[in-house]
């Protein structure tokens, strides 16, 4: 366990040194947040009755998404790992006395955490004091906050777990780039990155919220804002943990079999 913590630590520190990138990222995320709130405000004013949640809940959702973008970003893949896989240099990685799945998992998790760590606090602070319709509201209650913390953790782990499937698939495909674009798109769309899941047609939403993609960022954000509460919230978190177990276990099996195939073929 200690060596995986070491991987985590070195990645985390490495991620912190990009100061200008963090400032630029925060500026970008504020701009996106404002932009999205503007768009939804217009839709809200066009047909208030059709809005699937309260406007305040949606602004919270949008700011949380921006603040924690680093944790859940669907497009992030470790260049080094991908290059290693396509070039066949992954063989060197296999010589290390560590489990590859856990090692890669720790690296990916660390990069995500360090990106979010730099950016989330200022965004939370500023968004919390914005005037009127732009404000990030505090969580719906102490229970919701506790539930949110558990749910976010599970969500991030599922996000990394899903990305591990994409790494493992990179062993097979002729076009890692094309495959990645397709995968990123599906994950992004189904996890509510284009529009939040409650804005999907009701029938579609009822299916979507059961899928692992909803268990990444949608569930925690909806819990925080109070759009998902009580027994529903508990069930959603339980569902998250089920997916977490399935996805990490499945991902590990899949990656191991990809690696074995590589060994047999001789890279």
């Amino acid at each position: 366990m200690k060596k995986y913590l070491a991987f985590f630590r070195i990645r985390f520190i490495n991620g912190l040194q990009y100061r200008a990138a963090a400032y630029a990222g925060m500026a970008t995320q504020f701009a996106w947040g404002f932009m999205e709130i503007l768009v939804y405000t217009v839709f809200h004013d066009t047909a208030p009755a059709a809005f699937p949640m309260e406007m305040g809940q949606l602004t919270s959702y949008i700011w949380l998404r921006q603040a924690l973008l680093g944790l859940f970003m669907s497009w992030y893949y470790d260049r080094e790992l991908l290059d290693m896989i396509t070039s066949g240099n992954v063989a060197y990685e296999m010589c290390r006395p560590a489990d590859i799945y856990t090692m890669w998992f720790a690296k990916n998790l660390a990069t995500r955490c360090s990106r979010a760590a730099l950016r989330c606090v200022p965004i939370f602070l500023v968004a919390g004091f914005l005037p009127g319709r732009f404000r990030l509201y505090p969580p719906a209650g102490a229970g919701a906050l506790a539930m949110f913390c558990v749910s976010v953790t599970a969500g991030v782990l599922i996000t990394v777990g899903l990305s591990m499937f994409v790494y493992a698939t990179a062993f097979y495909t002729v076009s890692p780039l094309g495959m990645r674009i397709v995968a990123v798109n599906i994950i992004e769309f189904m996890s509510g990155g284009i529009i939040p899941l409650p804005f999907f047609p009701d029938g579609v939403f009822r299916v979507m919220r059961l899928l692992p993609f909803a268990a990444t960022e949608s569930t925690p954000f909806l819990i925080y804002s109070g759009a998902l509460r009580g027994g529903d919230a508990g069930a959603a978190v339980a569902l998250q943990f089920m997916w977490l177990v399935l996805i990490t276990a499945g991902g590990k099996l899949y990656l191991d079999s990809s690696l074995r195939r590589l060994v047999i073929q001789g890279g």
């Binding site: 520190i13 912190l16 040194q17 100061r19 963090a22 730099l118």
Partner: peptide
């Protein structure tokens, strides 16, 4: 210029 370790990483921010 920047030193090693977490402390100086944060400071350099």
């Amino acid at each position: 210029r920047r030193g090693a370790g977490l402390g100086s990483a944060v400071k350099s921010l």
